[in-house]
Design a binder for these strands. Structure first.
Lengths: 149, 149
DNA sequence: ATATTTTATATTGTGTACAATATAATTGTT
DNA sequence: AACAATTATATTGTACACAATATAAAATAT
């Protein structure tokens, strides 16, 4: 019975894993035109919504480790898209903000997710429906964290 | 209008990306007991279904680059789970096969996906339904590869 | 006020991902 | 048969991912 779960084509997890990588590969050439990778684009999505945030804010929204975000911010800074400054009132904090170049990228980036949406072939309703299902699943999995028996 | 797509919490792609990473993190401690990472576990899933396969067979089923699979197989070989041998009739090919240790791992691995299934809180029907939706989406995205306008 | 703990970020080390390149064997061509 | 094109795998280089550790500043405790 358990054996059926060991078949690759039965694994829901593998589907999520494959799909995620396939999406990243689809984004790659579109984002390369802007000089970004997909994770870097996610950081900019955060900043385009709220500028001047702590590093902490980014790691939490993206659910990423500092070991991932720290060097990524360094690369974004080297590329001239963001700026990093120690906070004046709390020297532990680093405030990340957009440069002019980083802000300017937003208009060019707008067509990227629209293009990806088109590739899904979804209607707006189907898109929303899938979003709801995934959000629900994520919530469920968080609740069932400890499922040992 | 396009601007709404730039909001992080509207991005279906980000949900897939987050969920995939969350699943991998959930697998990690369970697979660590077996001495495996998630991608390494995927390779073994392939071999448990069909032993003695070309490297090519693995890269295709997992949709992974040789640059990913080659070093991974080397690590699996060092860990004693698989064996690699040049094919006799075509010296270009490398045949990957399970060692006794690699085969033996299968029984211990059976409970891993069952545990993950439990965490989803899905019924068998819901599981199948989600699988169907994702398979359909992957097919759709492959068809709409070129969606430029 | 000083020692302890907590918090915010960075670094180290291992393992993917993947594009681009390299290498060697096989097949196809002339 | 000699050369070109193709095929199978490996290597190189860059960028995540993440656990574990390090570091320094702030908050708390004594």
């Amino acid at each position: 019975m358990n054996d059926a779960f060991l078949r690759l084509d039965n694994q829901l997890c593998f589907l999520f894993y494959s799909l995620s990588r396939a999406i990243t590969r689809m984004y790659a050439p579109l984002l390369a035109e802007l000089g970004l990778t997909y994770p870097q684009y996610l950081v900019l999505l955060v900043l385009w919504e709220t500028d001047n945030v702590e590093v902490n804010h980014i790691t939490e929204l993206l659910a990423m480790d500092t070991g991932t975000v720290s060097p990524m911010l360094k690369r974004l800074e080297n590329a001239g898209f963001v700026k990093r400054e120690r906070s004046a009132d709390d020297e532990r904090k680093v405030i990340v903000s957009l440069t002019g170049k980083g802000s300017a990228l937003k208009s060019g980036a707008a067509k990227v997710p629209a293009e990806l949406f088109c590739k899904t072939g979804f209607t707006m309703d189907e898109y929303g429906d899938m979003k709801k299902r995934l959000t629900h699943l994520i919530k469920k999995m968080r609740e069932n964290e400890k499922c040992a028996d």
